[in-house]
Amino acid sequence: MKLSSVHLSSFALLLSLAFCAGNAHAFGGRDDTTGGSYDSSGGNQTTQERAGSSCTLYRPSNLDGNHPVILWGNGTGASPSSYRGLLRHWASWGFVVLAANTTNAGTGRDMLECLDWLEDSSISGYINFNKVGTSGHSQGGGGSIMAATDDRIATSAPIEGYTLGLGHDRRSHTNQSGPMLLLSGSADTLVNPTRNHAGLFSRTNVPVFWAILQGASHFEPVGDGGDFRGITTAWFLYQLFDDADAATEFEGSNCGYCNASRWEVEQKSL
């Protein structure tokens, strides 16, 4: 499927309307799709600030010198503010989150430029550059896969990522630099899971945990992440903080999300 300018304009409008409606989720709620508490705040106070001219930074207010990084890519026509609740949520768990200020994140280049900025920034001494992840929604989800071909990236978690164009090159699927949490919505009519994600799951060269949220539309993650908030938080704790409890949500056939309501799961090499 190739999106026309009309489709792109409609997508941007729908995304804006979904954000204004609050996505029907209350920030700080509990994810009842698994037994974990990763949907709740991590407890750190957070700060939002500019990161150069092209990125927005969400971080714990108090930095202690060992913070992993999450790079974020927006959906088509969206901005970091469209996902502010989710990005602040990750920061509350100790992650330094850098969101590219672009409405077209599909190539992943803007996300990696945020990492370039961080490497030369005044807070670089507080960062663990061996623990960098990527994520994003829709076009930005596709961009997070593209960015994850960079050898500085340890893991990725694309959310309903568009992989059929808009800057996305499918050759990136076989050149990933770390494990992937692949997230789909079963009711997503804009980014169909079969067309966009089935081939990615089979082709990619890294371990993959593919989780399809039953009943989720394309706009589930807008605002505070919806029911993708808890699972992405657990994944990044597992991959970037080496959290043993979070690992049990993904490893083995009896993992937490393997048996959670509303999730259909496939694993590869985990």
Rank of each mutant, 00 (worst) to 15 (best):
M111C: 12
M111P: 07
M111I: 13
L112W: 13
L112Q: 11
L112M: 14
E113M: 14
E113I: 11
E113C: 11
C114K: 14
C114G: 13
L115I: 13
L115G: 12
L115E: 09
W117R: 11
W117V: 14
L118D: 12
L118N: 12
L118T: 14
E119M: 14
E119R: 15
E119L: 11
D120F: 11
D120N: 13
D120S: 15
D120C: 11
S121M: 12
S121P: 05
S121L: 11
S122E: 14
S122A: 14
S122N: 13
I123A: 09
S124D: 11
S124R: 15
S124K: 15
S124Y: 01
S124L: 01
S124W: 00
G125L: 00
G125A: 02
G125I: 00
G125M: 04
Y126A: 14
Y126L: 02
Y126I: 03
Y126D: 13
I127Q: 03
I127S: 02
I127H: 06
I127A: 01
N128K: 13
N128I: 05
N128E: 07
F129D: 06
F129V: 05
F129K: 10
F129C: 03
N130Y: 12
K131F: 00
K131P: 07
K131M: 13
K131Y: 05
V132W: 03
V132F: 03
V132K: 10
G133T: 01
G133I: 04
G133Y: 04
G133V: 05
T134E: 07
T134Y: 10
T134I: 07
T134N: 06
S135Y: 05
G136S: 10
G136Y: 03
G136M: 04
H137A: 05
S138K: 04
S138C: 09
S138I: 00
Q139Y: 08
Q139F: 02
Q139C: 04
Q139V: 03
G140Y: 02
G140C: 06
G140A: 02
G140V: 03
G140I: 09
G141P: 08
G141M: 10
G142Q: 06
G142E: 11
G142W: 00
G143F: 12
G143P: 02
G143C: 09
G143D: 03
G143Y: 12
G143M: 00
G143K: 05
S144W: 02
S144D: 10
S144L: 00
S144R: 08
I145P: 07
I145T: 08
I145C: 07
I145L: 08
I145M: 01
M146S: 06
M146E: 09
M146Y: 05
M146G: 04
M146T: 10
A147Q: 04
A147F: 07
A147M: 01
A147V: 06
A148L: 00
A148E: 03
A148Y: 04
T149Q: 09
T149N: 10
T149G: 07
D150Q: 08
D150S: 13
D150R: 06
D151S: 15
D151N: 15
D151H: 14
D151Y: 14
R152G: 09
R152W: 09
R152N: 04
I153W: 01
I153N: 07
I153P: 10
I153V: 15
I153R: 05
A154L: 03
A154D: 06
A154Y: 00
A154Q: 06
T155C: 02
T155R: 06
